[in-house]
């Protein structure tokens, strides 16, 4: 129990510290590296509450794909982040004010949290007990049955995203030499080589 509590505070404090560093680091590459640290600690928190599947997905998807993509973008684009941040202090008061107003509003909702009595019965698809099935099993069980409609719909959205990216960016550039393997294999010696009978002593 004590180990769990200790790990929670460790993960949580490192995650928050890393998140602060993401927005305060001067070098954007460092920001991305701190972001990765934050992701790892969030994954640790998920493991602590028994959501091991989401923890793994977080590492695989966010660290493995998204953060690496960020890193590429940051390194490839020549953006001066120092310039982008210039207005930061100037807008701090008004930004802070909006933030405080939002916080006050959120506290107001939180205070008025009323859950209607009928709600309990409506909670759809409660999670099965954690000691009977694994996370992956439990998610798979409802994802491909109860939520098949949404699953397929999301698939369609991704397909459209792919088509869109191709439509808007793919250009057939003239003058690009591509390897055509079938042409290469079909090439016969007769097409490429000319055999000349050279008489000895006379040259070509």
């Amino acid at each position: 129990m004590i180990i769990q509590a200790l790990s929670f505070y460790l993960f949580a404090s490192v995650a928050i510290a890393a998140a602060v560093m993401v927005i305060s680091a001067r070098n954007p590459v460092h920001s991305v590296l701190f972001l990765i640290l934050a992701f790892f600690n969030a994954a640790g928190l998920f493991v602590l509450i028994g959501a091991e599947f989401i923890a793994m997905i977080l590492v695989v998807v966010y660290v493995g794909a998204v953060a690496v993509l960020f890193l590429f973008v940051v390194m490839m684009l020549d953006i001066s982040f120092a310039e982008l941040r210039q207005g930061f202090l100037q807008y701090l008061p008004i930004g802070g004010l909006v933030g405080i107003v939002l916080l006050a509003e959120l506290l107001m909702f939180g205070g008025s949290w009323v859950i209607a009595p009928a709600t309990e019965g409506l909670r759809s698809f409660p999670a099965p007990p954690i000691d009977q099935v694994t996370n992956t099993h439990a998610i798979g069980k409802i994802l491909y049955t109860d939520y098949i409609y949404l699953f397929q719909g999301a698939g369609m959205v991704l397909l459209v995203a792919m088509i869109g990216a191709i439509v808007l960016t793919l250009r057939a550039r003239p003058g690009v030499r591509k390897q055509k393997i079938s042409d290469q294999i079909n090439r016969r010696p007769e097409d490429a080589i000319e055999i000349k009978k050279v008489q000895s002593g006379s040259g070509i």
Partner: peptide, 18 residues
Amino acid sequence: GYAGTTSFEGLATLFKGL
């Protein structure tokens, strides 16, 4: 968050019950 369901029928019964 406040209703506990995303289904339209669930929401409708919920609001009627309020």
